[in-house]
Design a protein around this nucleic acid. Structure first.
Length: 299
DNA sequence: CACTTGACCTGTCCGC
DNA sequence: TGCGGACAGGTCAAGT
């Protein structure tokens, strides 16, 4: 799932479900991708979840050891659990009453957890569990102190959030990279954060821009259309997934929800919904770009 | 330097 | 049915 809309949806769901819960234990069989920093596993026992957040595609679970002090100061005891889902990560919370799931649709999000892709299990004192499943083991978990420096160095360099960036800032940042190919730049997290292969394809389709175009070749109107196209496709995806996390599971079978609104991504050979030309896929910069060869011309 | 390629992992699907 | 190769919602390190 690892793009902004999917991360946003699961973060919103988790915020409703695990805020206030107390961690009982953490189990993992995945030392290679589990970074404790200065902490150890016992530092998480008894901590309380204070919020679940998102930066780019990274999930942040804020926890606190303190006994709810009167002052709202962030003490040294606050810890941030960072989770990156990479290509095939999933986060699933379930307890006796509820279940929320988000992430990559393979294996199906309704498959019971733990299962063979389960890498980390966070157990809470209410009997609920948060499972981090990741088929390909590309994802990671980092445990750091909740201060700006620690958190941002663990995440890496991030540009403005794709949902929050203004059109003005978007176009100003583009101007600094005239030679970049537009699709590659959109997926660069230090340029804007949150956009990956799906939403770069979707945004470019909406703007009728070929993914291999250079930034310098884009007209002002095209830059505006691209900005709008990205905003629209991100928001549409959040809406589709946001009504209920379970719709992720139900609506698209194993392929997941996104196929129900994708215009270009994964639509290889299907008619473009604007002009009927079959959608093409081409390898570009190491990734598959999906586009309409007729609407999105390489000038 | 900038840019490209490989590596990280495991699984599915498609063609012969 | 079996086997090989391509491919996968991401990112970093190493090589050129």
């Amino acid at each position: 799932m690892p793009e902004l809309p999917e991360v946003t949806v699961i973060v919103n769901s988790l915020n409703k479900k695990i805020k206030g819960l107390i961690l009982e234990s953490v189990e993992y069989d995945w030392p290679r991708k589990f970074f404790w920093g200065n902490y150890s596993i016992k530092d998480l026992k008894g901590v309380k979840v204070t919020s679940v957040d998102r930066k780019g595609k990274v999930v942040l679970i804020e926890v606190s050891k303190g006994t709810k002090g009167a002052k709202g100061t962030k003490g040294a005891k606050d810890i941030t659990i960072l989770i990156h889902l990479k290509l095939t990560g999933q986060l699933i919370y379930q307890d006796a009453k509820t279940r929320v799931a988000g992430g990559h649709p393979i294996p199906p999000l309704n498959l019971p957890s733990p299962n063979k892709t389960t890498r980390v299990i966070f157990a809470f004192t209410n009997g609920g569990h948060l499972y981090f499943n990741d088929l390909r083991k590309f994802g990671w978990v980092k445990i750091v102190s909740s201060n700006k420096y620690q958190v941002s160095s663990a995440i890496g360099e991030l540009g403005p959030d794709a949902l929050e960036i203004s059109f003005r800032e978007f176009s100003e940042r583009l101007e600094k990279k005239p030679n970049a190919r537009i699709k590659k730049l959109l997926m660069d997290q230090s340029f804007v954060s949150g956009v990956g292969n799906i939403y770069s394809d979707e945004g470019l389709w909406r703007a009728k821009i070929h993914p291999a175009r250079s930034v310098a070749s884009l007209s002002d109107a095209e830059v505006k259309a691209l900005y709008d196209g990205i905003q629209e496709s991100l928001k549409l995806a959040i809406d589709k997934g946001g009504s209920s996390a379970n719709s992720f599971v139900d609506s698209g079978g194993e392929k997941g929800l996104f196929l129900t609104f994708a215009k270009a991504y994964y639509m290889i050979g299907k008619p473009c919904s604007r002009c009927g030309t079959p959608i093409a896929r081409k390898k570009m910069d190491g990734r598959s770009a999906h586009f309409c060869p007729s609407c999105q011309k390489l000038k």
